[in-house]
């Protein structure tokens, strides 16, 4: 096939792609505009039972109680991404060159505040926007800053690091099973204990999410061999 033919073919393929996608977009736009005006939803139901969820913020109530099972699986997805990353590569070496003045200064200034802010988000999630994932993400930002600045982190034993990465998922599942053994449904938090249970789960999840995101950022499993032979 000549170059001109190939170019024409590519152009046609590109045009076809746009036509198909534009058609799909138009169909979807029609669909969105045709949705009923007074939205059906679960706003009222969510608020009606809010008093029994252990939290006051409706979004957190959905995440940590009404649909806690989704959030449990979401923790599994995050753990899975970490295992996947570790299975594919070894971590990139940390930067050895000293960081620039700005990065160093910002790291020293921001990291304590970020950690404090993560704790605040965790606590605030019960009654205003916030929660475990937000706290974990901020914690991860602190960890990424530290990693980029090349600062030496206190060395944590491998097994402890892995346990902390699992902490959120294990706490969540264990709480779900515990309340079931107590006679309820899986993940049915009794209203009296819900607040404490959810806070414990969120704290554990926040730590695991923060560490997990940092570990994914590092791009692979820790590079040194396991201390004990396999």
């Amino acid at each position: 096939m000549s170059d001109a033919h190939a170019a024409a073919g590519a152009l046609a393929a590109r045009a076809l792609l746009w036509i198909v996608l534009a058609g799909a977009g138009a169909m979807l736009a029609t669909a969105v505009l045709s949705l009923p005006e007074d939205g059906l939803g679960l706003a009222d139901e969510t608020l009606a039972d809010l008093g029994r969820t252990g939290v006051e913020h409706p979004v957190t109530a959905v995440l940590m109680n009404y649909r806690a099972y989704d959030t449990l699986l979401e923790m599994a997805v995050l753990f899975l991404a970490l295992v996947g990353v570790w299975s594919m590569a070894e971590a990139r070496p940390r930067p050895t060159a000293p960081p620039g003045l700005v990065l160093q200064f910002l790291t020293q200034l921001l990291v304590p505040f970020l950690i404090l802010f993560a704790g605040y988000l965790l606590w605030a999630g019960a009654h205003e926007p916030g929660g475990a994932f937000q706290a974990g993400a901020v914690l991860a930002a602190a960890g990424v800053l530290v990693t980029l600045s090349g600062a030496q982190l206190p060395s944590v034993p491998r097994a402890l690091h892995r346990s902390l990465l699992l902490l959120g998922l294990v706490t969540f599942a264990a709480a779900g099973v515990a309340v079931q053994l107590g006679g309820g449904a899986f993940l049915e938090f009794p209203p009296s204990a819900a607040k404490a249970l959810i806070l414990a789960i969120e704290a554990a999840a926040g730590i695991s999410i923060g560490l997990g995101l940092v570990a994914i950022f590092e791009g692979g499993r820790p590079s040194e061999p396991e201390s004990a032979p396999r």
């Binding site: 679960l42 409706p58 995440l63 979401e74 990353v85 929660g131 994914i216 950022f217």
Partner: peptide, 28 residues
């Protein structure tokens, strides 16, 4: 599009879950 202007919290929670999943997939 809630009836009396209260936003529906369920889709908001779904988005938060969706974002976490997207972060995980992107990292991988």
């Amino acid at each position: 599009r809630g009836q009396d202007g209260t936003p529906d919290p369920v889709p908001q929670a779904l988005v938060i879950t969706g974002i976490v999943v997207a972060v995980a997939a992107t990292g991988l």
